[in-house]
Amino acid sequence: MIKAERKPVSEIMKMLSATGDCNNVVVAGCGTCVTICFAGGEQEVESLVQEVKIADSTCGRDPRTYTETTPQRQCEVEFIEPLEDAVTGADAVISLACGVGVQVLAERYPDTQVIPGLNTTFMGPPVKQGEWYENCAGCGDCVLGWTAGVCPVARCAKSMMNGPCGGSQDGKCEVGKDIDCGWALIVSGLSRKGQLDFIAKAAKAKDWSPSSHGGQRKMTREDLMI
């Protein structure tokens, strides 16, 4: 799922100040992806409000009023419609959604200042409780079937299609000892399956046009349209 992490409260406060006298603030969490990664669920909404209150009182600002809400998903307009009264009456909305949710909210309520409370980081699973890694870059052209289920785009620091490079050592990437070398995993995975021939032939340069390098991506399914 989408992973994100909380921005430092100081950055959020800076944005609040730039917006003006925000005395009435909505803090909106998101009940799906960012809840699961402990960045934007109901608990984090509560926590951020506390932090803003403490920061305000530390610098002697008068208390603001807060509306806390955590819709199931901010990325679907239907889920944020019920927030209309709160949002339109607010001086600012701090959105603890991923960048997708923040934008849907901002687009739905164009006259309200929407402040992102999170940095959206990547798509990936938890390794264990409290630790996550990226494993999909959304490149639009999946090759996992050829690479033992390990993505060379997301899991190689150089997104090589013909790896591993000379920096692979003991299964780790030269960029950091805590990063697995994706290509070492590909080689071992394919060799376990007897499929090393999948990568024995030099691949030509990847077609990046389905990835984000082709401008904003869109999908349509005519048959689904209502």
Binding site: V9, S10, E51, I54, A55
Partner: peptide, 8 residues
């Protein structure tokens, strides 16, 4: 940590 981030 949250306290420190909040400037106190």
């Amino acid at each position: 940590q949250l306290l420190e981030d909040a400037g106190t």
